[in-house]
């Protein structure tokens, strides 16, 4: 198992190097440069070129790349051109908000989706199945930004409890504050801001998980060992929850894991609609401003997170299915 983890870590390295080359090339080869955008329409071309050389952006492409990757390997991701602050500080400052949102969205989605999927599979071809699948279909089809705006218009606007935008202290600060002061105030306030964006973000994923849980469970329920279990006279609930569900969850866990990785950096639309200060919005801002260091480091960070989450998902298979051994 340790060997497996080490090997996986080694495999991640070339993948990340590949990502670094792709993101570096993509943002540098795109038309536009950060200095012209920052300088605006008042500046002459001479002034722009002068500032470009002050930032070292006039150096050959490969020189800039090796300089950047060299510094990055030593933990220095450079300074944002747009914000004039170290990129690592900017991204790490936004990361808790992103993780919190992604995690809550997935938890809310999963808590509703898995039971719904199980219900649909167990009550296969009944009205319960049909109506859960109908709900799931709507969930998958609703565009994220539209659902966000609807939540704002029909829930946040009439109910003062839900804020319209932004984020106050995070859940983590809330937990810390609970243990230090014994008051849930900060935590509950964090939840208040988190709940609508998490619903908007979690709906599509949840709907997908519902459909997947249903189809996966249906498939497992048709297998021989389930007939055997039933033939032994086991209670139906034991057959489903103890024997079938565990195996049926394998593909579901893979999808949830992949979504978690993608959601941390990819919740951009939700972040924009709810003005949530997450990493995705920061990176998109960075792309608009052609803020090379910010975009490079941001995308690289998301790739690292993604690889890490994948590893955890792979490891979790072993707990679900003892047949899988890590060698």
């Amino acid at each position: 198992m340790t060997k497996f983890i080490i090997r996986r870590f080694i495999n991640i390295v070339p993948a990340l190097l590949g990502v670094s080359i792709i993101v570096f090339s993509a943002i540098h080869l795109a038309p536009g440069d950060p200095i012209s955008l920052m300088a605006g329409e008042e500046a002459s071309e001479e002034t722009i070129q002068l500032i470009i050389s002050q930032y070292g952006l006039d150096q050959p492409f490969h020189v800039q790349y090796f300089q950047w990757i060299g510094n990055a390997l030593q933990g220095d991701f450079g300074t944002s051109i747009r914000f004039g602050r170290p990129v690592a500080d900017l991204i790490l400052g936004r990361l808790p908000a992103s993780i919190e949102l992604a995690f809550t969205a997935i938890v809310i989605g999963t808590l509703i989706a898995v039971p719904l999927g199980v219900l649909a599979a167990v009550k296969h071809s009944t009205w319960l199945d049909l109506s859960s699948m109908f709900v799931a279909l709507i969930g998958v089809s609703i565009p994220n930004f539209w659902l966000g705006l609807m939540l704002l218009t029909f829930i946040a606007l009439p109910i003062a409890f839900f804020p319209m935008f932004g984020r106050e202290a995070g859940l983590w600060e809330g937990i810390v504050s609970f243990f230090s002061t014994g008051s849930l105030e900060v935590f509950l306030n964090g939840i208040r801001y988190l709940i609508l964006p998490a619903i908007a973000l979690g709906t599509a994923g949840g709907a997908l998980v519902t459909r997947l849980t249903r189809s996966s469970l249906l498939e497992v329920l048709r297998q021989d060992y389930i007939y055997t279990a039933r033939a032994k006279g086991l209670k139906e609930s034991v057959v489903i929850y103890k024997h079938a569900l565990k195996n049926a969850m394998m593909p579901v866990i893979t999808v949830i894991g992949l979504r978690l990785g993608a959601t941390i950096g990819g919740a951009i639309v939700t972040e924009v609609v709810f003005s949530w200060p997450g990493v995705g919005r920061l990176i998109v801002d960075g792309i608009g401003w052609r803020d090379f260091p910010l975009v490079q480091a941001g995308v690289l960070l998301i790739a690292i997170l993604f690889a890490f989450v994948n590893l955890i998902v792979d490891l979790s298979y072993g707990f679900l299915n003892p047949k899988i051994r890590y060698e």
Binding site: L157, M164, F274, S275
Partner: peptide, 18 residues
């Protein structure tokens, strides 16, 4: 100054009094 990038969301924030 509160940063609200989406035009519709900004309008809703005004209507909601935030």
């Amino acid at each position: 100054f509160r940063f609200i990038p989406d035009d519709s969301a900004r309008l809703l924030a005004l209507e909601g009094g935030e």
